[in-house]
């Protein structure tokens, strides 16, 4: 068993509302880029939110490194090493880039270590270093997404979950985002992303997961998912042009 995170048969939904996830499962292996695809309302974001503790899991189990995560608060799960970047506005727009990074290490108690990590991150992302004292809200979409991803690295997480990192970005910029993800996984950070642009997501990933109606329909190597004729017809058809 080489899995890092194992999601078994979970049911979850918002408040007292209907179950959005109904028997979803997921296996995350260390060091790979995983891409979850599926139509609108399939439960992709809901799956990520259940894993990171923002939604109560009604049934099923989430196990990370042999530890059950069910019922833990988001900050506890973060301390375990799972970091989630929500869709679109994950930043604090009226804080500077540096302050945003400092928030990324909010759970760290060692102030000196935190400042050192911030400097390391700024060193690695020159585009952020140039803008360290600029308000995050004034940067371009791609820069903001870069900051959101870089911010997760402050605590050296085991898994980074990204909800549609490509949303609203130009194709060229999207490729830059995927390059950052590849770099992260090369360094041993496991990436789990939800992608609306299924074709592009799968091409840049190692592992593909197809989710629909709150259930996992398929899990396998990204290449296999791309090649499956039924998945091509149902989920990749409209995206051929991309």
């Amino acid at each position: 068993m080489s899995e890092l995170l194992q999601v078994t048969n979970i049911t979850a939904g918002y408040g007292d509302g209907p179950a959005i996830l109904d028997g979803a499962h997921l296996t995350v292996e260390p060091g790979k880029v995983h891409c979850i695809i599926g139509p609108n309302g399939a439960g992709k974001s809901t799956l990520l939110k259940s894993i990171c503790g923002m939604l109560t899991i009604r049934k099923g189990e989430v196990v990370f490194n042999g530890k059950r995560l069910n019922g833990m608060r988001p900050d506890q799960i973060l301390r375990e090493g799972i970091c989630f970047v929500p869709q679109e506005r994950a930043l604090f727009p009226k804080m500077t880039v540096r302050e945003n990074l400092r928030m990324g290490g909010f759970i760290l108690d060692d102030h000196k270590k935190l400042e050192r990590r911030i400097d390391e991150i700024l060193e690695r992302f020159p585009i952020l270093r140039e803008r360290a004292e600029q308000h995050a809200g004034t940067m371009s979409g791609g820069q903001q997404q870069t900051l959101a991803m870089a911010r997760t690295l402050i605590i050296k997480p085991a898994i980074v979950m990204l909800d549609e990192p490509s949303l609203g970005l130009a194709p060229k910029v999207i490729q830059e985002m995927f390059d950052i993800m590849k770099m992260m996984s090369a360094e041993g950070v496991t990436v789990l992303l939800v992608e609306q642009n299924a074709l592009m997501g799968l091409k840049n990933s190692d592992w593909g997961v197809v989710l629909d109606l709150g259930r996992t329909l398929f899990e396998g190597p990204a290449g296999d998912v791309l090649a499956d004729p039924r998945i091509q017809e149902l989920y990749l058809g409209g995206n051929k042009a991309a």
Binding site: M54, D75, L78, L91, F106
Partner: peptide, 16 residues
């Protein structure tokens, strides 16, 4: 300040 600007993101970064 973080909670003021983005409640969800603050929660995800470990702010109670």
């Amino acid at each position: 300040r973080a909670t003021t600007q983005n409640r969800e993101a603050a929660e995800l970064l470990g702010v109670n």
